[in-house]
Design a binder for these strands. Structure first.
Length: 483
DNA sequence: GCATGATCATGC
DNA sequence: GCATGATCATGC
């Protein structure tokens, strides 16, 4: 073994040495270590490849810490029990920061027995102490030119588990119980709150593996991860020391079950109330279409619309209005998409896959009765992995095919019809317009304000900006079991 | 009367 | 000025 510039048995020594990395780009680290110009070019290209997702971490391991790359379940700094994690963060438009990705912690054993106890797991040993190296990601430059900004020694016990202990432990149990029941193929990242079961491997089909507890049905390889929302809160709190960002709903450590019970109780306290009474009780005079969502935050005691537990667990509040005869009034809307990106992205990297694999939902149900809506129920929900893999995938494919084939239009004075699949032709999700006004450019002919309201199609036409929507019939079949 | 295309009030 | 979280409303 060559001489190392730090004591590999001592976490503090490793951390002290790591402080000199701050301010460097990944390319700097390469050039400080490679004198031959051709070798430098080769390595630069290798580590700059966006397909090599873990490659910046490998670069740091190899060229800064001089470690052998280890793909095993032992920590990177084995003798000090320290795991190295190199991860991006990004700046939001309003200047605040968010984690760039979930933090992958270690593979979930699929072909071997799962330890019952979190403390007996390889995961616990591996992530007990983490050297977290954060770089500020700028997507406009070569990834290898990004600058490393922070390095921090993170202790699982004092920094992470202390405040979120019960939830992470119950997350671990949910994941491992499903595996032990032979249901690893039904795992979804949105099943849990902070510790997620993230998919691993380029495409799911490539990464299918037989299950130890159910050899007949293969399952995707997955890794334990701390969710992106969790990491955003973590770096704001523990790296940037910014504690003003969120309001928390529950001020003590609880399991997922307890958390959900507490949150539901805060809402269901008002079960049966008419919405007009709720609006006056909580002083909401808004005429905005999102007034029901504003009401829910008020009922939860959240001043901003950022609840700590919801942000950390990627949970979205959505309100649902039922008609008197128990149908949903409307489909559920999501943000606008970029059509060209939509049609050119693989399923597992698509916004729809990412949204439904990672998001937990808190549905607040109101029901119409005579001339008002009455609070009926509050339901935590996430899309079952099977529905995502099969039904949502088929719907998505129809839209991708039609957009790539070329969308046809029929223009009339009152509306412009398009040849995208209709909501009634889909089972889980559909695309529909969402803009200030309708706008199109069809074979060069312009209708409406295309700059503001239209989105480009692959064939050069433009159509009104589209969002994706969750079908109301699907939502109804999902929530009907709850009441 | 519902499906689908169109649109809105607000906050940041 | 635009993203958000929705609801509105025409015409089949």
């Amino acid at each position: 073994m060559n001489y190392l510039p730090y004591d590999e048995t001592n976490p503090v020594s490793i951390y002290n040495y790591s402080q000199d990395i701050v301010g460097k780009t990944f390319a700097d680290i390469l050039s400080e270590n490679i004198t031959d110009e051709d070798d430098y070019e080769t390595e630069y290209a290798r580590y700059n490849n966006p397909r090599g997702k873990g490659s910046l971490g490998e670069l740091v391991e190899k060229y800064y810490f001089y470690l052998e790359i280890n793909n095993e379940s032992r920590p990177d700094f084995d003798l000090a029990n320290v795991e190295l994690k190199v991860t991006p963060y990004e700046q939001n438009k309003n200047g605040s920061y968010r984690a760039g990705e979930r933090l992958i912690l270690g593979m979930i054993p699929n072909s071997a027995p799962v330890p019952d106890n979190f403390y007996g797991s390889k995961l616990y040993k591996k992530i007990h102490t983490i050297l977290l190296i954060l770089y500020l990601r700028n997507r406009d430059i070569d990834r290898i030119e990004n600058v490393i900004k922070y390095t921090q020694l993170v202790s699982l016990e004092s920094d992470i588990l202390k405040e979120d202990f019960e939830i992470i432990l119950s997350d671990y149990e949910i994941i491992t119980d499903k595996i032990k029941a032979g249901l690893a193929h039904e795992l979804s990242e949105s099943d849990t709150m902070y510790l997620g079961a993230a998919t691993k491997g380029a495409t799911a089909k490539k990464s299918l593996q037989p299950q130890y507890y159910n050899p007949d049905i293969p399952a995707k390889r997955r890794a334990f991860s701390l969710k992106q929302g969790y990491m955003t809160a973590f770096i704001n709190k523990h790296v940037f020391n910014n504690t003003q960002t969120y309001d928390s709903i529950v001020d003590h450590s609880v399991s997922i079950d307890e958390f959900q019970q507490i949150v539901k109780a805060k809402i269901l306290k008002y079960k049966g109330w008419a919405s007009k009474d709720l609006f006056s009780e909580f002083n909401i005079s808004s005429k905005a279409k999102s007034k029901y969502a504003m009401l829910v935050y008020a009922m939860l005691g959240i001043k901003s619309n950022r609840a700590e537990e919801f942000e950390k667990s990627n949970t979205q509040i959505k309100t649902i209005r039922l008609s008197e005869n128990n149908n949903l009034k409307e489909h559920m809307s999501f943000p606008a998409i970029n059509l060209i990106e939509f049609a050119g992205t693989d399923w597992e990297d698509s916004v729809i896959y990412e949204t439904f694999s990672e998001t937990r939902f808190f549905f607040i149900v109101f029901q119409e009765q005579s001339d008002d809506y009455y609070l009926k129920d509050a339901i935590f929900w996430n899309m079952p992995q099977n529905d995502l893999d099969e039904l949502a995938y088929e719907d998505w494919q129809k839209y991708v095919d039609e957009i790539n084939r070329g969308v046809d239009f029929v223009v009339t004075p009152s509306r412009t019809r398009n040849s995208l699949p209709k909501p009634s032709q889909t089972s889980v999700i559909h695309l529909r317009p969402k803009a200030k006004k309708s706008a199109h450019r069809i074979q060069g002919k312009i209708y409406g304000n295309i700059e503001r309201d239209a989105d480009l199609l692959p064939n050069g036409d433009m159509m009104t900006k589209q969002s994706f929507w969750l079908n109301k019939e699907y939502i109804l079949t999902e929530i009907i079991n709850y009441y």
